[in-house]
Structure formats: structure tokens, C-alpha cells
Computed example of a mutant assay.
Amino acid sequence: MPQCHPLVSVVMATRNYGQYLAEAVESVRAQTYPHWELWIIDDGSTDETFAVAERWREDARIHYVYAERLGQARAKNLGIRLSRGQWVAFLDADDRWEADKLRRQLALAAEYPQAGVIYSRRRLMDAQGREIASPSAERELPSGWILEELVVQNWVCFSSAMVRREVLSHVGMFDERLELAIDYDLWLRVGMHYAFYAVPEALVWYRTGHANLSRRVVERGETALAILSRAVEQYGLGEKVSARSLQEAAASTCRTLGYVLRQSSAREAARWYWRAWQQGGHWWLTCRGLLACLHQALRRGIQKAFHSLTSMRQ
């Protein structure tokens, strides 16, 4: 494939997302940029995934591979190894692309030959594909050497990312020892050596809130903290970003966990907010979270006391 029309390998690792698979695959087939191949790595699905994938058996651009429970990192790496494009793009089987996604990103890549990763904004949708308002929709995406920003927040929507193959050859593929936050680990390693550039418009629809979505929130947060610590100790991350950014990254992760857990357990949420306080960073955000936990605990305590008093009177 000539360099002016590079082949893009789309890697889609999936397990039991058969109900969404057709929508994702058709969004690839609808691309206005024609030079692509798609590798569907079925990681041991027990639903209708195989039957759905059979629809494209005659499309030579689409390859279906069944693998017996490799895990998401190994499944994605298998797709990368089997593919042959100069660029590797990722698409989760429950998401979908806009038709001009690849064309827009390759045009940006041509402007910035030093780019290692091209990504874009995303739109959120629910399980039925209806748009959900996103609180970060108006925030400007960082471009260039963004390691400092990536440490604090994973800006890169996974299904929007397109990576040069030589980048993966240099820094390695997904860490197969990890089950969660595998993209955060990869972006940190890439960001230490390569620039990221963002298309400012939303080129991806990201599905959230459906039943198959992993809810291992605390484990995700703890994994992210472990990845950050390892990046400092083994990759030399502390030599490339400020100590303040590292502190804020850890504090931000702890605050996020506190926010998510606040509705189910004020005590557990407060524990994570306290860990955020110990890390430093934006202390007023941590204080606000702790006060919210206290308010919730007091409200529930008052409600419990009221119900007990009412029961005694009856």
C-alpha cells in the first residue's frame, strides 16, 4: 500500500457483545477512507457473536478469529500481530465510528508526521444508542507532547485511537499481566516518546451504562494507581513529568473513586477522599467530596433514627 494511502488495521476484541457487533462493524464498512482491514478477535463469546460475524464472511477485508478466553490485553495483541497496516486503530465492539473518522485522522497525521497517536473527541450514548450529555464535551483536547496531561487524566478515548505500528514496535503492545486500565498503561509508555494529536470534533460514539459494562470500579482505580507507581519506578516517568502532576494524578484517581462510591457507601467513599487528601493536589475538591460524604452519612443517620422512633411509637 503506498504511503500516501496507508492501510489502517482496525482491531476489535470482543466478548459477548453480539447485540452491538453489527453496528460497530457497519460503522467501519461505512468509512469514506477505503484502505482498511478489520480483525475481529472473539475472546470466547457464548452469545450470538459468531452468527453475527458470519454476515461478513464474503468481505475479504474482514477477518474473524475465535480465541478461547485470552483476556482483553492478549486478545488485542493477537489482533495487532495478525494485522499488517501502517496504522492500528482500535474500536470496541459496543462503540461505533462516524463515517469520516479514518479520513479525518489520516489527514491530521499527514500534517504532523511526528505524531505517534491520533485520537478524537467522543459522544456518549446509552445502551439503546441514544445520545447522553457529556460534562466534558466542551473541554479542549490536548495535542502535542501531552505526557503531563495524560498522567493526570486519560484523555484518549480508546475507540478513537489510531497508533503508528512502529510506535507499538518501540514501546511494546498491551501489558498482558493487566486485566484493567490497559490503555492507560500503554498511553503512558507511548507518551514518554511520541506526540499525540487530536481531531477536535467527535468522531466516535462511546456506549456507557449497559449491563455488560464492567463495574469493577475500585479494582480499576487501584490498578491505575499501581500502573502510575510502576511507571515512575520502572519507566522513569518521574524524570519526565513534575512531582505535582504525579501527586494530582493519584489524588484525582482517589477522588473519582470517592465520587463513584458515594451513593453506595459514604464510609468507603470517605476513605478514598482521605487518600486523595494525603496525595495533595486540588484540596478544595477533596474537601467538597468529604463534606458530601459527611452530609450523606448524617442524612441517613437522621432518617434511620426517625424510622426507629416512628416504629417505637407504633
Rank of each mutant, 00 (worst) to 15 (best):
Y194D: 08
A107P: 03
E149L: 01
G172E: 06
Y66E: 08
A67Q: 13
R121H: 15
H307Y: 15
R104F: 04
A109L: 14
Q114W: 08
R216D: 12
Q105E: 13
E54W: 00
V156A: 04
A202E: 09
N154W: 01
R165M: 05
L168W: 03
K304I: 06
S27Q: 01
A22N: 03
A133I: 06
A224S: 14
R230W: 08
W145N: 11
V199N: 05
C293K: 04
E140V: 15
A13T: 04
F158G: 07
R207Y: 08
L70V: 08
G71R: 02
R130I: 00
I62S: 03
A30D: 13
Q314T: 12
R139Y: 12
L186F: 10
E48A: 14
H170F: 11
E179M: 07
R164P: 02
T46Q: 13
S120Y: 09
V190M: 09
V218I: 15
T208D: 09
A276W: 09
A198P: 10
V8C: 09
V218N: 00
I182W: 04
L178N: 04
L7K: 14
Y259G: 01
P200H: 14
C293T: 04
A67W: 00
L91W: 13
V241T: 04
E98R: 15
T253E: 11
L225F: 00
G301C: 09
E68G: 02
L124E: 03
S265Y: 03
A89C: 11
D94P: 07
R313H: 11
I182V: 15
C293E: 10
V241R: 05
R15A: 10
L246P: 10
Y66W: 14
G280L: 06
V25I: 15
G281K: 08
P142C: 00
Y66A: 09
K76W: 03
T310C: 13
I132H: 00
A53Y: 07
A195S: 15
L291F: 08
W56P: 11
E219H: 12
D126L: 11
C287L: 15
R230C: 03
L203D: 06
V25G: 02
Y235C: 07
A202Y: 04
I80N: 04
V10D: 06
L298N: 01
V241F: 01
P135D: 03
L237W: 08
S160L: 02
R139I: 14
E148T: 10
S120F: 12
Q303L: 13
A115P: 06
S134Y: 14
A30S: 14
L188M: 06
R84L: 03
D59G: 06
H282A: 12
G79A: 05
R267S: 12
W272Q: 06
D126V: 09
M125V: 15
D175C: 07
Y64H: 11
A226W: 07
L102F: 12
K240L: 12
D126F: 11
P6F: 10
A22Q: 14
Y20E: 05
E176F: 10
R15W: 06
N77K: 08
L168Y: 04
I62G: 05
G79D: 11
G281E: 06
S169E: 14
S229I: 00
E166W: 03
Q86I: 00
E138Q: 15
V25H: 01
Q114V: 07
Q263D: 12
C4A: 15
N77W: 07
G144W: 05
R244Y: 05
V152A: 02
F196S: 02
L102C: 11
N77P: 10
L257E: 02
C254T: 00
Q278W: 11
R189K: 13
Q72S: 12
